[in-house]
């Protein structure tokens, strides 16, 4: 049933008529219609990023059109499966959110029929570094304070995260492993509701991303303890990185693009170059920042290397999930 279903979904991506496109010398050929699979509902953050890039691609390749195809469902799994099964002519690609694509395929119970080898990384575009926040009148001023308290009271500090086994949950496990402490995760379906519980004093902290927190920091309701990136965030330059606090933890949500495996290499490089040019455009940088994201371009090979390194990092963390 799953197989047949996957086949039906694959059909969803059959936009491009050309049969000989795979042998094309130049990419993209003139006046082609490409479809861009976005595994999220229209209007979500990922969708807005996807549409930003497709409008940029339409400007970069005049005459070509790029149709966003929203295929939400089961986290990203429905859309990623459709991307893995999509036509390999280079005219169907998709928005990939790391590390969620990886965590989904690692969870055997979910039965995902794709893995790293199903995709050709194209480029990374936007990045939202992970961060941890507490209520503004919380006694914890720094990540070190927070961890010291957790050492004293094992499992007593509660940290709001989105779903079990997701990126934020794994971040918390990462802190636990690095610092030798234990927290109690509290699962929320979205970061807004987790923040409501934080501000109402129900939970000790929320693990999320910088973009989730900027509004409430401005309102003076919460304090971000640390950003899990190699440099401070442009949105909150006063907040120390986890590295500065002595914990070498780097995590965040990225939005990039990938082709299904088997697509022509030329497509990956052409798209990667086009996205690279877009990423240098000041107007585009501003648009991405308006969404609360950082623009973080990685080309074809850099994105692939990042993908591989995330797999290594996450394999260690998922082993610690309660079975």
């Amino acid at each position: 049933m799953t197989k047949r279903f996957a086949a039906v979904l694959a059909g969803a991506c059959l936009i491009v008529a050309g049969v000989t496109a795979a042998q094309a010398q130049t990419y993209p050929e003139a006046n082609k219609r490409s479809s861009v699979i976005v595994a999220a509902t229209a209007g979500s953050g990922a969708d807005i990023t996807g549409r930003l890039v497709t409008s940029g691609l339409e400007a970069a390749f005049p005459g070509n059109s790029y149709q966003v195809v929203n295929l939400p469902g089961a986290g990203l799994q429905v859309g990623m499966q459709a991307l893995a099964d999509a036509p390999k002519d280079g005219y169907t690609f998709g928005l990939t959110s790391l590390p969620t694509v990886i965590t989904l395929s690692m969870d055997a119970a979910r039965g995902a029929q794709f893995n790293r080898d199903s995709f050709i990384p194209v480029a990374n575009f936007a990045y939202d570094p992970g961060a941890i926040a507490v209520q503004v009148d919380s006694p914890y001023q720094t990540l070190a304070d927070f961890i010291a308290a957790a050492k004293e009271k094992p499992e007593e500090l509660t940290v709001g995260v989105t779903g079990p086994g997701g990126r934020e949950h794994l971040d918390v496990i990462g802190i636990e492993q690095a610092a030798g402490v234990k927290f109690t995760p509290v699962f929320h379906n979205d970061s807004g509701l987790a923040l409501n519980d934080l501000m109402g004093g129900n939970i000790t902290a929320v693990q999320g991303s910088v973009g989730d927190f900027t509004a409430q920091v401005a309102n003076g309701r919460i304090r971000v303890l640390a950003v899990f990136n190699d440099k401070r965030s442009t949105f909150m330059p006063d907040v120390a990185t986890a590295e500065e606090s002595g914990f070498k933890i780097y995590s965040g949500t990225s939005r990039g693009f990938a082709l299904p495996a088997g697509a022509p290499e030329a497509a990956a490089t052409a798209l990667s170059d086009a996205i690279g040019k877009m990423a240098a455009d000041p107007e585009m940088i501003k648009r991405v920042q308006d969404q609360g994201l950082e623009l973080k371009y990685m080309d074809h090979t850099q994105y692939g290397a990042y993908w591989d390194s995330e797999i290594v990092r996450l394999t260690a963390l998922t082993a610690a999930l309660p079975k």
């Binding site: 059959l14 008529a17 966003v68």
Partner: peptide
């Protein structure tokens, strides 16, 4: 601007 599956081979393009 809502996506609907198009006809095969661009028949109706």
């Amino acid at each position: 601007h809502v996506y609907l599956p198009p006809a095969p081979y661009g028949a109706l393009s």
